[in-house]
Design a protein around this nucleic acid. Sequence first.
DNA 1: TAGTCTCCGATCAATAAGGTCGGAGTAAGA
DNA 2: TCTTACTCCGACCTTATTGATCGGAGACTA
Lengths: 157, 157
Amino acid sequence: MLKISKKADYALMALQHIATVQSGDVTPGRVVNTKEIAEEYNIPLELLAKVLQTLAKNALIESHNGPKGGYLLARRAHQITIAQILESIEGPLGITDCSHEKDGEFCMQRENCHIRTPLLKVQDSIAQLLNNMTLQDMMGGTPLITILSPTAQGVER
Amino acid sequence: MLKISKKADYALMALQHIATVQSGDVTPGRVVNTKEIAEEYNIPLELLAKVLQTLAKNALIESHNGPKGGYLLARRAHQITIAQILESIEGPLGITDCSHEKDGEFCMQRENCHIRTPLLKVQDSIAQLLNNMTLQDMMGGTPLITILSPTAQGVER
DNA sequence: TAGTCTCCGATCAATAAGGTCGGAGTAAGA
DNA sequence: TCTTACTCCGACCTTATTGATCGGAGACTA
């Protein structure tokens, strides 16, 4: 449950790879193409292409066409949050259907629903978690614990 | 994204209702049947029945057959965590496929995957959040803010 | 003991995800 | 300048998961 889709998974891998290559000391600033990523991680080529396409459309990466073309990060790694990546692929995050209802469209259970408020709180917690974590934190040996606490430390009861 | 299923949604509503009725001062300890819940929240009767069935099988509620029958909480409300409820319906929680791989079965990307560890950290945070929240916290005017803080503190609008 | 109300398991339909195909644009190299 | 080959791009099909439904078996009350 609460599973993220494979496409989102692929997006994270690809961006992590691009970010690493780009900041690497071997060939910094190098453009990386779809095929390279697909082969490195055993991802279906055409599916990955679609994912990168979406990321480009959402201005997370820049696409360069033609021979020697490929993708490049649109912003610095520490300016791209995990939440932004996931939302680019899967749409706005919301653990329940009634999370982002427009005015006028309510779920059938709305009037008597007592769990809406608590669930929205949970959702906010998760959102904050993902918003405070950036692509930078996924690179190298960055200690994740510094990002996730105090949330991960244990919730006071 | 990260959406919980409707069945899980229904499960939460139903349990919240049963818990409230059971601890209510009108008819405390009353048995509540499927039809009553379905009508109260506009949930498809047969689908809800299936959900309650699953909850009973996982020993979260007790089923009483025959006329005047229905369901009863198997434990006290504060002893039932949200995580237990969700896992009963949707299976073990895991935001990525490789969360609970048995020995020998790995995903194709495993060997070069650099995002596994960070994602597992995120997952742990969410799990802890849901494990520290009980059915009791969803009842009445219980101030959720005491449960979710400090995480939820800044998100208040 | 009869009747009715309940829970229970197997089955079908709808939706969303996963994966695939051919086309258009662009820059490098001759 | 022109050709060529490599890239990204958009629409389509297939598969899997979820949502919803039906009929039957068991159990308690009167």
